[in-house]
């Protein structure tokens, strides 16, 4: 174990770990909310995220091309791709709810059947993206869209829009503008969501449905609307996560969702599934733990750290750090 490396790069490992963790946390919100309301693991949420990364990528490609852009225009481009990513992810999430879940919920299917449906949906979505060149060809669009659909099974990189500036040092590490942007905007999104679920009428409906669907329905909560809203909010957060991920990592691929999804799920369980604030805590802890772990054991063990952490939590504290409770969140 390489303790020297960990100590010498402690600041950098921690800051970038927090940035990754913030992204995990945003994705984790989708898992945690759906689980809180339906007690289902939305296995396909990883693909909701993945489609968001491509929406951000394509929007940026479309608006930037190969030219350099001014700072002002760059900010505009980034905002556009953020909106595109959120819209894309929200759409996919709603489609999932409509086609993969609602028919099963209607007839009260066992949870494992719903999980199998979600696994199927997840692979369909990932493969459609991985075969996008073929799909475009079916529609005769491959010539027009070749720039966007080519390299369907390899990493595609985002054109750089803004220079990543070094802002201020912590220890030996120069914190960059992307680090700050990712962490700050992720936390801002989460606070906004938390407030929405706690204070708005719709949020109350979601919490009521999470606590007791039958009573909530009797009290006039439209359960289908509440479930839709849950998927929509989860999708929006995953879209924001996808945008921030593209800022930080700058490349994406059709199967990028799986690993991110498992890690986000780990974060959700770590914080206490069903618990919105738990998702943030879990995400940040996982991001940092993963960075420290990869420093100690070597970066090739990075993903193993996350998996082992997942298995260990599920075994020893399946209710997570903050406990499970979407329903119990107080207004």
């Amino acid at each position: 174990m390489n303790f020297d490396f960990l100590f010498n790069n402690f600041a950098e490992l921690t800051v970038t770990g927090l940035a990754f963790g913030a992204i995990y946390a945003l994705i984790a919100l989708g898992y945690t909310m759906v689980y809180g309301v339906l007690q289902l693991i939305n296995f396909a949420h990883s693909e909701v995220f993945m489609y968001g990364t491509f929406a951000a990528l394509w929007t940026t490609m479309l608006l930037v091309g190969d030219t350099d852009v001014s700072t002002l225009r760059g900010i505009g481009v980034l905002l556009c791709s953020l909106v595109a990513a959120m819209a894309m992810s929200a759409t996919i999430a709603l489609l999932l709810e409509r086609f993969a879940y609602r028919p099963l919920l209607k007839r009260n299917a066992p949870r494992l059947i719903a999980l199998i449906s979600a696994i199927g949906a997840s692979f369909v979505l990932a493969e459609l993206m991985g075969l996008r060149d073929r799909v475009a060809a079916w529609f005769g669009l491959d010539d027009n869209l070749s720039e966007y659909v080519s390299g369907a099974r390899i990493n595609r990189s985002m054109p750089s829009v803004l220079e990543n500036k070094q802002l201020f040092p912590i220890g030996d590490y120069q914190v960059t503008s992307v680090d700050v942007l990712v962490i700050v905007s992720a936390i801002a999104m989460m606070v906004a969501l938390d407030q929405f679920v706690r204070r708005s009428k719709m949020g109350r409906g979601i919490r009521a449905t999470a606590q007791d669907p039958e009573t909530a329905a009797l009290m006039g909560v439209n359960a289908t609307r509440a479930v839709q809203m849950t998927f929509l909010l989860g999708g929006l957060m995953a879209g924001a996560a996808a945008f921030l991920y593209m800022l930080k990592i700058e490349t994406t691929k059709f199967d990028v969702g799986f690993l991110l999804g498992v890690k986000a799920f780990t974060a959700a369980v770590l914080g206490g599934i069903g618990n919105l604030r738990g998702a943030l805590v879990g995400g940040l802890i996982l991001g940092v733990a993963e960075n420290w772990g990869s420093a100690l054991f070597g970066s090739e063990w990075r993903d193993v750290v996350a998996f082992v952490l997942l298995v260990v939590i599920l075994l020893f504290r399946p209710t997570g750090i903050l406990g499970e409770s979407l329903g119990k969140a107080r207004a």
């Binding site: 693991i41 070597g298 193993v304 998996f307 599920l314 399946p318």
Partner: peptide
């Protein structure tokens, strides 16, 4: 032995983690 006590859908995720750990250990 340790995992069969957790809830059914958690078991699915634990086993998924196990499968990946085996592969990553072989890879590394």
């Amino acid at each position: 032995a340790p995992t069969l006590r957790v809830r059914g859908d958690y078991l699915a995720i634990v086993t998924l983690g196990f499968g990946e750990i085996i592969r990553l250990v072989a890879l590394n």
